[in-house]
Computed example of a mutant assay.
Amino acid sequence: MDDSLSDLDRIKDEIADSFDEELEMEMDESRLEALLDDLSDHPDREALDRRLYFRELFRLQHELVVLQDWVQKQGLKVAVLFEGRDSAGKGGAIKRITQRLNPRVCRVVALPAPSERERTQWYFQRYVPHLPAAGEIVLFDRSWYNRAGVERVMGFCTEEECEEFFRSVPEFERMLVRSGIILVKYWFSITDEEQQFRFQMRIHDPLKQWKLSPMDVESRRRWEDYTRAKEDMLERTHIAEAPWWVVEAVDKKKARLNCIAHLLTQIPYQEVARPEVVLPARVRHADYERHPIPPEMHVPELY
């Protein structure tokens, strides 16, 4: 009975989290504070936890905006790699990082499976064009480490190709760092039980079923193979110039906050003074006339 109640509570949390994603996108901080103030005396722990989560999220996102301005002003080049098992929460963390940033400064790279031509290229070649230029932050939602993970486990590369990757990647990353790129690597870690639960949620949620590919389903069966591949990867590619950072991600909200807070410590930054913005008076002309838009061009107002 206790287990059933626990599962029910987790399902409620998962559904609430889906709504939270929409709330975060729609609510600005002041409106959120007004809403949460109404819950300040609420005895339910969940409401208090969500209050803390939102407050910390907005505080950290404000710092990310400050960091963005500093990266742009100083011409820094930042590349952040997000790796982890399917459903580990990489995409959710990336979404919270980019949510309030300028997409011209901070962009996400999520490459599809390589084409036939790309399979014949130097392995790192298709990633190089996406590396940051001065004043840019690039977030890789999976990266060249596909070779050490899914490609190795699913047999999309040979053991010889994988060994060559392990020989090359430390030198490749040292070269990136020497060239001035700030390289940060995150592994999002979840338990076997948590991945099972999240996959079940995706199966039964029509809004999330698209996230569950045949490859994801197969990854469940090969959990232990992925574990061995992950351990080998972390051991052989954890270098001083570009170390791995492991994010405990069973609790999605804590993982997002911890990841963002840590990322902010990896790049020393200062607030950039902004000139005061003053809107000029609109120019008005006596002969200006705004013409009505034909009714058939309007989107129907269903709401």
Rank of each mutant, 00 (worst) to 15 (best):
N102R: 06
V138S: 03
R126N: 08
R96D: 08
E118M: 05
F140T: 03
R107Y: 11
E116K: 14
V105M: 11
I97L: 13
A110H: 01
L131G: 00
A133K: 15
V109L: 12
H130K: 09
N102C: 11
E118A: 13
N102P: 07
Y127F: 15
E118Y: 05
R104F: 00
P129Q: 10
A110N: 10
V105Q: 04
F140N: 00
V138M: 01
V138I: 13
H130N: 13
G135A: 11
Q99H: 15
H130F: 13
I137P: 06
R119T: 09
L139Y: 03
R104C: 00
A93H: 08
G135I: 10
G91C: 09
R96L: 04
L139E: 08
R126D: 01
I137W: 06
P114V: 03
A93I: 11
I97D: 06
I137T: 04
P112D: 14
F140P: 01
T98K: 12
R119Q: 15
V109A: 09
S115N: 03
A134Q: 14
R104W: 02
G135C: 06
I94K: 04
A93W: 10
A134Y: 05
V128P: 02
I137R: 01
P112Q: 14
L139Q: 07
F124E: 05
R104N: 12
Q99T: 01
V128W: 09
R96S: 13
Q125K: 15
E136Y: 05
P114L: 05
P132R: 09
Y123W: 02
P129D: 03
I97T: 02
V109W: 06
K95N: 13
S115W: 02
V108K: 12
V109N: 05
G91V: 02
A93F: 11
Q99A: 15
W122D: 12
A110V: 10
V138F: 00
V105H: 06
Q99L: 14
F140G: 00
P112W: 07
A93C: 15
R126T: 03
T98F: 01
T98V: 14
K90I: 07
F124P: 01
R119W: 01
Y123M: 00
P132F: 08
G92I: 08
L111F: 03
V108H: 01
V138G: 02
A110Y: 09
K95S: 15
T120P: 01
Q125N: 15
P132H: 04
V109Q: 11
L111W: 10
N102Y: 06
A110F: 01
R117V: 14
H130G: 08
V109S: 13
T120F: 03
A93M: 09
F124S: 10
H130E: 12
Q121D: 12
V108I: 13
F140R: 00
K95A: 14
P112C: 07
G91W: 05
C106W: 10
R126C: 07
A134T: 09
R96K: 14
P129T: 04
V108R: 11
R96I: 02
E136G: 04
L139W: 03
R100I: 01
L111Q: 05
A134M: 03
G92K: 09
L111K: 07
P103Q: 03
R126K: 13
F140D: 02
E118P: 00
W122C: 00
Q125L: 05
G91D: 10
I94L: 11
R119E: 14
Q99K: 11
I97S: 09
R107C: 09
R119C: 06
P129I: 07
A113G: 12
S115G: 01
T120I: 02
